[in-house]
Simulated scan of single mutants.
Amino acid sequence: MKLRVLGFAGVAAAALVLTACSSTAASGGSASSKAPAGLIQSGTLTACIDPEYAPLESYKNGSSGDIVGFDADGVRALADHWGVKAKFAVTSFDGLMPGLNAGRCDIVWSGLYESDARKAIADSSPYMQAGPTAVAAPGLARKLGKQEDLCGLRVVTQSASANSTDVTELSKKCVDQGKKEITHSDYPQTAQTVLAVLNGKADVLVETNVGAAYIASQNDGKLAVAKGVFPSETTFGVFSRKGDKLSASVASGLKALYDDGTLKKLAEQYKLDAAALDVHN
């Protein structure tokens, strides 16, 4: 099951381009000898990102300041590897893929699952294994062990995501099995989905395992991850334009950052399971 898949009808918000702090990135706008061909701005790697998905990408001060997280620091590390500067083109979740294909950025590195639909319009390089999971109040979370346990419950997802599509399909399956349908609602931001559960407007939030673990850790005693409800059967990917000459460099750059331990260090820094990075083996 694939989650957080971008809706193609979404219209990109106006992108705010932020220069990322990097101690080893090349200064100025001149291209490094290691810089790959195909960057939209010579000497700069520009990444589309939606910084409201900790611990992958979020603002350091909640709604302002530097963008931090595994993905954000991964962008910086890839830029450093190429000897260029890093920039973030900040946009809404449903504007990430349109922003890429409109040429606002070189890559999308923002906690997005690979999917057949997305790979049909963009190239992708895997960097982390992931999967959906359910988050609920601790008492309910302990009772959830399979997908059908969500039948009859109020389930919330982020809009324009595959979470939403998959929950809709699961609800139909519930009805086909003679069970109650899922009362399903969407919110545009992850923070809003969390509040929906905390405020009693929903019983369960379906999110990625990476995001869910962080959400539960930030709401200890109020929310918990339900184990075994969904399988982990997909990966997060870094996306570049379909057929772009930059795509091969992104793939080899990610492999280099994996091989030299850079991605493992970032995973440990943000308390992620480093074994989830074993997508290059």
Rank of each mutant, 00 (worst) to 15 (best):
G10R: 05
P138C: 05
P55L: 03
D166I: 12
V238Y: 05
I121E: 13
Q218S: 06
R4Y: 11
I182D: 07
V68Y: 00
P36V: 10
Y127A: 03
D278N: 08
F230V: 02
A15Y: 06
N101H: 00
S161P: 12
D203N: 12
Q189W: 11
S247G: 04
Q189P: 01
I49K: 04
V206W: 06
L263H: 04
M97Y: 02
I215P: 08
L150F: 06
L6C: 11
D149R: 11
N199K: 12
Y270F: 11
D149N: 09
T208M: 12
R142L: 12
D176L: 11
K180R: 12
T208I: 06
A275S: 15
R4V: 03
F70E: 01
A226R: 01
S30G: 10
V194I: 15
G139N: 09
I107Y: 06
T133D: 05
A202V: 06
K245Q: 09
T190V: 13
Q177K: 14
C174S: 04
S185L: 14
C48K: 08
S249K: 02
Q192F: 08
S232N: 13
A274H: 07
G145W: 14
D73W: 07
A14K: 12
G7N: 11
G237F: 03
V135M: 03
D50K: 02
C48Q: 10
L100C: 01
G7F: 06
V135G: 03
K179N: 11
P36E: 07
A274M: 04
G69N: 05
L56M: 08
L254Q: 03
E57W: 01
Y59H: 11
L277P: 04
T168R: 14
A12N: 06
S22M: 08
G28K: 13
W82V: 03
P132E: 09
V17P: 05
T190C: 07
S159Q: 15
E57Q: 10
R104D: 09
K271R: 13
E181W: 09
S240V: 03
K60A: 11
L144M: 05
T234P: 03
I49A: 01
G253N: 04
A102K: 06
L100Q: 02
A191L: 10
L277N: 05
L277V: 06
A256M: 08
S249N: 08
G211K: 09
K2F: 09
F230N: 02
P188S: 08
V108Y: 02
D220C: 06
G28I: 13
D66F: 04
G95M: 01
E233P: 00
A25P: 12
G211E: 10
F230Q: 03
K60P: 00
Y187N: 10
K85P: 00
Y59M: 03
